[in-house]
Design a protein around this nucleic acid. Sequence first.
RNA 1: GCCCGCUUGGCUCAGUGGUAGAGCACUCGCUUCACACGCGAGGGGUCACUAGUUCGAAUCUAGUAGCGGGCACCA
Length: 895
Amino acid sequence: MEIPKQYDPKQAEQHHYERWERSGFFAPEINRDPAAPVFSIVIPPPNVTGSLHMGHALQHTMMDVLSRYKRMDGYRTLWLPGMDHAGISTQLMVTRELKKEKLTRHDLGREKFVERVWKWKKESGGQITLQMRREGASVDWSREKFTMDEDLSRAVREVFVRLYDDGMIYRGNRIVNWCPNDQTVLSDLEVQKEAHAGKLYYLQYPVKGSNQRVTVATTRPETMLGDTGVAVNPKDDRYRDVVGVTLELPLTGRQVPVVADEFVDPEFGTGAVKVTPAHDPNDYEMGQRHNLAEIAVIDQHAKMTNDAGAEFAGLDRYQARDLVVEKFAGLGLLEKVVDYEFSISKCERCKTVIEPLTSTQWFLRMDHLRDMALQLSRQEKKPRFVPEIPYEKIYTTWLENLRDWTISRQLWWGHQIPAWYTPDGEVVVARTEEQARNKAGTDQLVQDPDVLDTWFSSALWPFSTLGWPDETDDLKTFYPTSVLITARDIIFLWVSRMVMTGMKFMHERPFDDVFITGTILDPHGQRMSKTKANGVDPLQVFDKFGVDATRLKLASVGSTDVRWNDKQVESYRNFANKIWNAARFCLMNADGAKVEAGALAISGDTPLHDRWILSRLNKTSQVVRNALADYEFHEAVQVLYHFFWDDFCDWYIELSKTEVTAEEDNVQRTRARTTLLSVLEQALRLLHPFMPYITEDLWLRLPGTDQSLLHPAYKEAEPTIMLAAYPKAQSELIDENVEWQMQSVIDLISRVRNIRSEMNIKPGEAVPVMIAAADDALRSVFTANKNQIKRLARAGEVMISEKLDAPRASARAVLAGGAELAVPLEGLIDFEQERQRLRKEREKLESESAKVQAQLSNPQFVERAPAEKVTELRARIEDIAQRVGQLEQTIQNLG
RNA sequence: GCCCGCUUGGCUCAGUGGUAGAGCACUCGCUUCACACGCGAGGGGUCACUAGUUCGAAUCUAGUAGCGGGCACCA
């Protein structure tokens, strides 16, 4: 046979994907059953600037497992791929490239710059889509989307116009998060709060016409230049007298009032708060309540403005801070400075400290959208979060506290806002410039230069990718999608917004379930990140252990955070090799037989081990299906692993070897080979969603794998395991009695092996084995499998009787069901050692018996526990008693 | 500050009211004709701690400790 002894993942990974893609296996159209149920997933679109990391590999594995499973199960399956234009990230990427040419984006101008970004996108963007092919992701590339595609952009404009017409989008001057580095406004979600060890400065403001001073505490002294008031709590007795008085603001000479506001916490600092409406969100609101002026003293580059005064204008905010403090100290108005830890807001992308500024931006009112999402959650429990705890609560709590969303960005890369201004400054919002001209009655229009937040277009992803606003077939067929699989950090940014826009524009949830994956941490439990450079590259893991092994590891991660460990992938690499070699054995002994669906039935003369493996196989398929239905990927992987390795390889192959490897070509051999091949084939199908490459590679090599094995929905397709039917559990083949019988034989063989090992019997040496069972059924099971016992226990003569009559010099064991075992070992046995061994075993049984006895002798237990439990315990204690009796007898006989 | 989660063998993790599990690591024995990325046989845990509920708790409840996460307008 030309099959190598070792599985080479690279060989299998080379050819199959290309064929699958070329043959259209990934497209839902491959399914020819008009009545087929539908399964659909949209991919969380990776950033066009991104490359594959473990988080992607993890999500993609799970999406692919489900897609492949459902496809094999006959569903019309669509897994839709695509990418996100990732406004800020991409713009930064290209800006950095320009910098190498000593250019800025302003040198190019907007139009040329955007052209340049498109060029970059075409040439270097989307590296990740190539990497996804390596992963084996069964996405339909013919439906690949990009958020800046013309059709998706049309959906964006449509949504914007409709929301504007509904009065939900508005333009306003408000305090916003400004990134002085990226030169754009950011939404609250794009701002990171970080603990910061700073200082709290106590500044004194003189009361006008008095020696009195009011002390305020601040972490940002430079903002005092923009103060237009001081606030105290109305209930604060300390400040009762000063409410209403005028203060003379140092350094500026500005006269500012003291106002009373409930917001002020008397416990904090001095109980008096300086109010800078132009540079602090809370002060902004207080300013609104008390009609305080807004004086912007910091500009968009975080430099002080002319309004900050001649001495400060042009200074950086931190230089200004030092100067303000120095001046206060000089004036004797700096009361004290204390160390103080507080949280500081940073730009999520560039880590620059955010400057709160008042600015004119576009906002989306969230109240109506929020209410629809909350109602969907409360009334229909949709989407269903898995795991429910803690994500459902995190999601609804966030919704409840939702504020308006700042949707404009001062970038060039993105969807330009479909709003135009007339020479009079009138705003016209329209789907196209032409429409805007008609509406405005003039062609002297200037379009708003801003673009929309990247997440605005991602929010439409589940329906914009399917053709909305047109009522396409895809939209009708695949919306709402079945499940969304993503990481927890974009529940707010993305998941919630898809729900809200889905409800608003489709009047229906975008997906039934949301599965939140765990996070893969580095070996020390730290999050993997670029800055820490502690990430593990999935592509390197693929190279080292193979894609299938990596996928198996990733699938078993499920929804909990785990520390990465190569060893686990290595063990799945070994598993892949095990599968390879099991198939190798089957193929080496396949002459005269082929895979046959009919072999998976039983008849009167089907041997026990065949009945047994069929029972195990069907049980496995049932458990795997149930696990996948509940997104219990870990459970599915474990069950498949143990079925294949323990049941199929360790026992079934060994049990069927005699017949399968027989020299003579006869009916038994053919039947045994057929069953072996057919069980292997079913096992490969069960494994395929997790390990697509090795299963396809082997499946195609099996004799008899033709179109007839495909799911009826794919009858016309070329043979491929990915379109074979996913095995259904046939309950008539699950037989507990058969499993018990086989287990008795397995236990017996294990006990003999145990004795051999403990007695240091040479592997090649055959020993006589004496078995006794009073129970007729059990005895006949042993008798029927005498040759199996002989071979697998390396026994010489096997004697089976009703009562044990073994020589004194025997090693013994007692088995379940009252069976006994003796291995005569004349001359090899140390009687004292054997007695010790048996006593140890008796002690084990006795301590277990004592525990059970204690329970049974408790009248409360007998009274209150379920009757079947009590019966079960009584039966168990009886069995133990019998075994202890037998052991006792044996020990005595030893003398 | 508020809310939530986790704590199980040396390591990484399953399990979740009725006899403690896996993989890796470890010990012993094997070139047994599919596989040494293997085969066979073993050792190892009072399931963080305390109190409670229960006939019975690793599993439920409360608290404690350690770790982690989410939210927050404390100047």
